[in-house]
Amino acid sequence: MDELIIDAKNLKRTFKVSQREKTGLFSSLKSLIIRKYVYVEAVSGINIQIAKGEIRGLIGPNGAGKSTTIKILSGVLHPSSGLVKVMGFTPWLEREEYVRHIGVVFGQKSQLWWDLPPIDTFSLNRKMYRIPDRVFRENLEYFKEILDIGNVITRPTRQLSLGERMKCELVCAMLHDPPLVFLDEPTIGLDVLSKDAIRRFIKQTNQKKRTTFILTTHDLADIEDLCENVTVINKGGIIYNGTLHNMKSFVSNKKTVEIKFAKPVTMEMLAGFKLISFNPLDVTVEIKPENGSIQSKLNQLISSLPVRDININDISIEEVIKQIYTA
């Protein structure tokens, strides 16, 4: 295996959370005196190894434990137990030195000064990370070119679009040349063009500087476009860890078949097939090879119905993820 940049073993984090059983004023007043607490295990025994130079996707439903994992790995939170080594550091114990070697972008939290142009925040970061002038200038030029933000960084942040702000957030996180970057939902709320620009930036920086990226997202196109390996987290634990390609077969080797008909058909005529979508002239069905060969299933379709065109696809990534989440 390639050199590891992150090695986390049996990571756990429990939160004590107050809980109110009922809504309403009486319940609120009661909670002033008697409060019920529950212990929530946000991360429960995660083992994760990430190689240097990788772009690793970290996905899972809301509340799965992704952000908590990222916060522990980036030194923001102390874990309840477990061992973590990132580039030889224990993040929460050697935080001040460690964070010089990482960059973090939280898609929903900005580090840009709202009233000032991003260039001022960049200068402040230069001061904070003690970035030499030459490196600062070179990196800024590189980012300006690759992200096309030459005329953006001198305008007040509050006048920038979400996409422009996100590009500047990436610059903030990467001006000091960190070998490891955590991106927590970097494409949230962005339009197609902005998403594309950010993905291109991640890919090129990964190739040019061999920067390792850990990416959490709910946009599976980010994962398909960028990541070779994926870690799926749910209910605080890892439920899949491996290549994106293998993830599809991890669930099953189902196929979806899109069929176009020359004449309208009825749902009754498709009895025996699992319908994914139905339109009298256009139908998608799911076929499980274990219930008989694909060929015999298709023969059955073609011989009994007025088929005009047919497309056989692997199950979509969305469907795979949905199945893993609900497993």
Partner: peptide, 14 residues
């Protein structure tokens, strides 16, 4: 309150 304090913990200072 907003959880933005995280940002300070990502800076190389106390």
């Amino acid at each position: 309150w907003r959880g933005d304090f995280d940002r300070l913990l990502l800076k190389p200072y106390p």
